[in-house]
Design a protein around this nucleic acid. Sequence first.
DNA 1: CTGAAAGCGCTTACAG
DNA 2: CTGAAAGCGCTTACAG
Lengths: 362, 362
Amino acid sequence: MTESEKAAAEASDAALEDFQRSGRRPTINDIARLSGVSKKTVSRIINLSPFVKDETRERVMKVIDALAYMPDLQARGLAFRRSFLIGLIYNNPSAQYVIDMQQGILDAVRGSGYELVVHPCDLSNPNFLKDVRAFVERQKLFGVIMPPSVSEDEALAQLLAEIECPYVRIASVSLDRNEAMIVTNDRNGAAEAARHLADLGHKRIAFVSGPTSFRSSHERREGFAAGLAEKGLKLAADDVVFGAYTFESGVECGAALLKRKPRPTAIFCGNDEMAAGVYRAARDAGFEIPRDLSVVGYDDSPVAAKVWPPLTTVKLPIREMGRLAAEKLLSGAVEGFTGRVIDAKVAPALVVRESTAKPAGR
Amino acid sequence: MTESEKAAAEASDAALEDFQRSGRRPTINDIARLSGVSKKTVSRIINLSPFVKDETRERVMKVIDALAYMPDLQARGLAFRRSFLIGLIYNNPSAQYVIDMQQGILDAVRGSGYELVVHPCDLSNPNFLKDVRAFVERQKLFGVIMPPSVSEDEALAQLLAEIECPYVRIASVSLDRNEAMIVTNDRNGAAEAARHLADLGHKRIAFVSGPTSFRSSHERREGFAAGLAEKGLKLAADDVVFGAYTFESGVECGAALLKRKPRPTAIFCGNDEMAAGVYRAARDAGFEIPRDLSVVGYDDSPVAAKVWPPLTTVKLPIREMGRLAAEKLLSGAVEGFTGRVIDAKVAPALVVRESTAKPAGR
DNA sequence: CTGAAAGCGCTTACAG
DNA sequence: CTGAAAGCGCTTACAG
């Protein structure tokens, strides 16, 4: 280092300290001035451009770190014509499901500077598409994530494509390009439940379906039927009753099934909420679980461990699904996410607790 | 209208149609040009300035409506030095609580152009304050809402004040200026529960407290003790056991209380989750609710209606609390919110279901 | 590998 | 009541 370089370095150190004392939030101009480069070069560094000499980058980074510089997201957003926000558009009635998904998304974006904006909605609202469009366009969302059954709305997916808003859909089967899907393979989970009940020796088995407007209702039914078929059993149309994925609908469906003669010895429910409702119906009708009736749920939500006896159910890794969806969405656009999750698989798994046993008399 | 005015109007109509055909999103410049005013005047209209002639406003509004103009939030944000985002910072373990609060906040901001960004956090994380600060400053949040127990952290409130981030805290007692508080008056709710149990004839009554780190635990305990005192009963220190507002802790506390001789004939729980745990403990120990034991919860969360027998509990209007908090936050800054809720009161109310009855032998 | 100029779509401060 | 200029803090397109 020559004398004159040393003097320059000292001068810039002094300027840096002056700035620190000022207490102002630094801008790209401050960083450029204090490190002796143009703001364009600072911009290149912020945006991880490879076209910066290592030495230059180090010098600038030192100033950035010393001043804890954070680029202004509004300004970047204005120039980029988009924000650093991810939208979660959902209509799932389960609070736990939504919270788990939010957590998963936040797991993925932590440290990236992106944040999560939540947008519950109602598919039956005639303004639904207009609302979503306004939401996306006003905030210039980076992209959106959609769990079922919003994810199954083709008109919405088409709208998002038209306005060029990246999205990832979470659904029980693939509905889109691989890059835009997280698939939960509900058939496999339901088939596992079927094999479990068949192996215990049950023959008269009923299925409480979710609403037919949810794709998962069909997938779980078909997977369940396929699992029974492997064991030589059949799920007749008459063995299926329809609920709404809610506790109350579970009570009603359970009560109806338990009045039948002969009554089923096992009931598979489309989700845990309805299974809890079937518990209530069984109690009201004087049946004991699992002695008189085996029950299996789906989701492994917290309620599954809180009911008595603890519920055998199919575990859906909701938080992980959220994380995978966010990683897929950011993949490519954000450093560190590239291609990592394109082939991620979600595998449902049976969790055997105490609500299933051999049927009476075996 | 003179001939030349008419010609001008026709010309501008044509220009407007041209623009509509272009499919571009209009900017403030387009609106200004097409309505023949400066962009400053358009800006005044967007910002509801009274200093615009009615006739001018009407002319400009016509163009705004025709083109469905939405001001760019990034650009406004850059100029205003803040965003149009409200943060929800929370550490509440109940999914239903958080979802209800989110819904309430969204009820309030609907149509205002503001959106909700969620930020779960962990008070015990040493980086907690730094994380929140980065969250608020990076996104330049308009303001934040904090439910318990985040709301009770004075260091956080002080930090937000320092960085001039408006906030509203939700808590069981007032901790701040009226403009920054939604108070849930937990003492009153707990006192109602106490009177209900005393009126039924219970004498041996226990309280399962939430964690002492939650202010609500103290408030509910003191309110409960005060309610009992009105009826000539006393809540001794020995009658209080401490849980963690979780199901599992409720099981443990319930089991411990039911082993006592003489055992309590009624248990008031700091929340519904723990009450559900006490149900489990009662069942495990062979006691029937309400025959052998009366149980009262707090919150009126969905679990209260799902357990058997349905739980008597104190209803906390969580969604409304979220709405009130958001209205208070936006009050003053956003048209239509001014002063409307400064004196809003949250009143807890006892919901009597089937988990409470006279003690055995009366 | 680096930079000067123009622009993103708004608002503020000033002037009239 | 209205407007021309400058600015918010970044990036893009171009040039070297």
